[in-house]
């Protein structure tokens, strides 16, 4: 990776452009991301993989401004992300985010979870919001759970509601932060199937995941990270079958052998 400053590129057709991203925590003592450049073209699926603590989630959280970069620039859909809250709210409306812990709102039903942002942010009337919400629940395969509260749903169902909640805002880009890591093994597939269907529909996605099978099947690009830097990136076939870097090989040996 080139170090130091680069000329800032003009916004391209990419959904996301990240240049020279550095993110430090604890007054610079912890360097979570240490100079990352990444491009996510429209309709592509980028899988971020790597050992825990390698900075994948932090990169993802910088894309919708849940973390503000310490250095470098992030463009989302042609807009430079800054710490200004009006910019952030506008960008976040167009970027869906799915969390490891689902983060459904426990005091609202599945339907209300989905309609909340449409009604508060988009100012849609109740009927229109509910119609969209039901369509999205149908899309993730659980239309019958509209009136259920999160605590009445299994982990897999909760995560599918969370995906529907993001989809209902018609995002141009979806971010997934280890969406299956908190699930019991038997529920992982129902969530991955929804994500695969999304990818086939042409949704632009950035996915932090430990599911190598999913990365191989759905990703257009696999990005391997370690210690806050990108070790190597390329099409899944190349990365999984003939990795160039020793660190990539070591990582896959650990992941695939248990």
């Amino acid at each position: 990776m080139p170090d130091g400053y680069r000329l800032q590129s003009p916004p391209g057709p990419e959904a996301v452009i990240i240049e020279g991203l550095v993110k430090t925590f604890d007054h610079g003592k912890i360097r979570a991301v240490d100079g990352v450049d990444l491009r996510v073209p429209m309709r592509n699926v980028v899988a971020l993989v790597g050992p825990s603590g390698s900075g994948k989630s932090t990169v993802l959280r910088c894309i919708n401004g849940l973390e503000i970069p310490s250095r470098g620039s992030v463009w989302v859909d042609g807009r430079l992300l800054t710490a200004k809250s009006s910019d952030l709210d506008a960008i976040r409306e167009e970027v869906g985010m799915v969390f490891q812990q689902f983060n459904l709102f426990p005091h609202l039903t599945a339907l209300e979870n989905i309609t909340l942002a449409q009604r508060v942010v988009r100012k849609w009337p109740k009927d229109k919001a509910e119609e969209t919400a039901r369509a999205q629940l149908e899309r993730v395969g659980i239309p019958e759970k509209a009136e259920s509260y999160p605590r009445e749903l299994s982990g897999g169902q909760q995560q599918r509601v969370a995906i529907a909640r993001s989809l209902a805002m018609s995002p141009k880009l979806m971010l997934f932060d280890e969406p299956t890591s908190a699930l019991d093994p038997e529920m992982i597939n129902e969530v991955l199937e929804v994500m695969l269907a999304l990818a086939e529909d042409g949704m632009t996605m950035v996915v932090v995941t430990h599911e190598m099978g999913f990365a191989r099947a759905a990703a257009s690009t696999v990005v391997v990270m370690d210690q806050g830097r990108i070790v190597e990136q390329g099409p899944p076939k190349q990365i999984f079958d003939s990795p160039r870097e020793e660190r990539t090989r070591q990582f896959f040996e650990k992941v695939l052998h248990h």
Binding site: R92, E93, R165
Partner: peptide, 12 residues
């Protein structure tokens, strides 16, 4: 995570 989910949906 609750406020992060809210902010991610575009709520102020």
């Amino acid at each position: 995570g609750q406020s992060e989910a809210g902010r991610s949906l575009g709520l102020s």
